[in-house]
Design a binder for these strands. Structure first.
Lengths: 345, 345
DNA sequence: AGGAATCTTGCAAACGTTTGCATGATGCGC
DNA sequence: GCGCATCATGCAAACGTTTGCAAGATTCCT
């Protein structure tokens, strides 16, 4: 009888709230609240009695009520706007890894993470709605997608927001992200150093991050007096991308000798297509990716790429968000990309 | 003046709650609540007036308060216990893809998703704590890890819980997952059909799912009268796994002619190591993976593997959870694995 | 026109915490 | 043993919604 599981014990005499517990302990609800919150103003013996009772009955204060009263929830919202490419973005390795690190960092700081995917085209109100829900103390937006304007609109009126993405001169919202343009330059310089002269950019140039990478490539082409970079747009979902890449290659393969892929994922797909079409890498065509995902190490030949420091990014996002939550004003943070030379260029 | 952004307008005369809005509309808070909730008992004109006012001031009812009063939050908790292998599991492609689909399904059903990673070794109380927080209406546990007992303990006292994992005869908690043992059999049968006789299992056999895959392999070995399956344990994090695989291979490579990897990720790493050590696949050694992640299509040669239907799994998890939330009692759901033959076996 | 049925709205009590203020109890110095 | 500081606790009012109940307003039927 006495060694029953605590959860079972209170099947009828359940202790549902702080008041029940207070009655059991013979004190007032206020005291229980203070005891459980670890406030110093409560007598040590009383505190212990209450704590034991709470443990014994498996009682935990209701976070909703607490949140309501204290006007803070202990939850940070993480939202992934799925812009152009409705589908699939979330399973993109890069975002997922970032999400994992965010979860770690937030947990470490004592926050919970509320995840929301939104399709802005179907729900123009996505950001306000999330913020206004009263469920979250702050929000991290993963990827500006094509929602730069909307985010910018909100930024002035709502401080605890940080965005992963590309930094642009004079923008109002606080952003953490890699210097994509510099990354694009590094990638392209490498292609050139490896002997490429007629270079293509593989990927959609719509999203800001990609646009910046593309611009970086153009910088180098211009500086070196090379022919202009050829843009080969693709979608991000693997199945469609594969076809599109195949089409691009059969049309342009003989006209180019270097490819800068917007993403390692695309680069890996491209590598497969190149092999299928009998094009030698890096001899016929040089290839550089972006992100340095785990897959970059495992392609054959291993992929030369531009590394983004995802862990540092996550740390930066959380760190800045907490500082803003504390009322500080903060600068955007741009992380340096790093060229990782392997075997494709 | 009149076309200012709604969010700006109320810098001083802000409407923070339903009562403010009620005052503006000249009605009682109750009516506003009903109007915004879309209840039928409010006059159409009044409702429109209130809705316009709300839109105009960018007002949204506080979800915390609503949740507190209605005793439901509209949030489903998703928890990933990091068992044996503290690190990295979350960036595992499989879990992440599952998470993405879960986010989709839950959104479609009008629920939000609260994500929590826990390390059970450091926090024995992880599940009760999440459930007792009062922040979530139900919980989905992704992966039993080594926490089978703890989950089982909770299952009887807390109905709205569904677990992704392996089904075991007579267990109390409701689970959705692939028939791992059958999957193991399919994989091993294929290895045998491709000419393997001395087969190894690559991966930790601790976690239940993996143990079941291993058991499936043993089933076939026994049935066919082959030598017993050799277990080659590894960790899951790519860096450590690589070393361990290399070590295993240099020790055992000549004694085996078939490898069943617990995961495509491991299989891909293994493929790289095999190549490095000059072992031909599938001629010297046949290899089969598990999951059918995108990477399986991109290895060289493409990976033969056992497919898990992740989307169906996510749908099943959410569907069952909602049914339990509605008070139905539900059966576990085991999904059939499917052998996908490519080029490594 | 009178009465019943139907709509619409307001009132006020919850939901479970937290916390400023006040009060009672205890200990201290003299 | 008295006054004063310190400590520990209780009281009750918030936080912002929802909702059963009741009452007022309108419509409809005969």
């Amino acid at each position: 009888m006495s060694d029953e599981k605590p959860e079972r014990r209170n099947s009828q005499g359940a202790v549902r709230n702080i008041t029940d517990l207070a009655r059991l302990a013979g004190v007032s609800p206020g005291t229980v609240s203070r005891a459980l919150a670890g406030k110093s103003l409560v007598n040590t013996k009383t505190r212990e009695r209450i704590e034991n009772l709470a443990r014994e009955h498996g009682f935990r204060p209701n976070q909703m009520a607490s949140g309501l009263r204290r006007q803070k929830t202990g939850v940070i919202g993480v939202v992934i706007p799925l812009g152009h490419d409705t589908r699939q973005q979330i399973s993109d390795s890069f975002f997922m890894t970032l999400l994992g690190h965010l979860a770690d960092e937030l947990t470490r700081e004592g926050y919970d993470l509320m995840l929301r995917r939104v399709v802005p085209d179907e729900d123009a109100d996505w950001l306000d709605r999330f913020i206004g829900s009263g469920m979250i103390d702050g929000v991290i937006v993963i990827g500006q997608s094509d929602q730069f304007e909307r985010i910018e609109d909100v930024a002035d009126g709502y401080r605890p927001m940080v965005v992963w993405g590309n930094h642009q001169q004079g923008q109002h919202h606080c952003v953490v992200g890699t210097d994509n343009r510099l990354g694009g330059r590094l990638a392209t310089e490498r292609l050139v150093a490896a002997g490429a002269r007629r270079i293509a950019f593989l990927g959609d140039t719509g999203p800001m991050e990609f646009a910046a990478r593309f611009a970086g490539a153009q910088d180098i082409a211009a500086r070196m007096g090379l022919p202009p970079i050829l843009a080969l747009p693709t979608h991000l979902s693997p199945d469609r991308a594969s076809e599109e890449i195949a089409a691009h290659l059969s049309q342009h393969a003989r006209a180019i000798d270097g490819i800068f892929a917007a993403t390692d994922t695309l680069a890996a797909l491209c590598l497969t297509e190149l092999r299928d079409q009998g094009i030698a890498v890096p001899d016929d065509v040089r290839l550089v990716g972006f992100d340095d995902l785990p897959i970059a190490r495992q392609t054959v030949p291993p992929l030369t790429t531009v590394r983004q420091d995802i862990a540092a990014g996550a740390r930066g996002l959380v760190d800045i968000l907490l500082r803003r939550l504390a009322g500080e004003s903060t600068e955007s943070m741009v992380l340096p990309p790093e060229l990782v030379v392997r075997a494709t260029a």
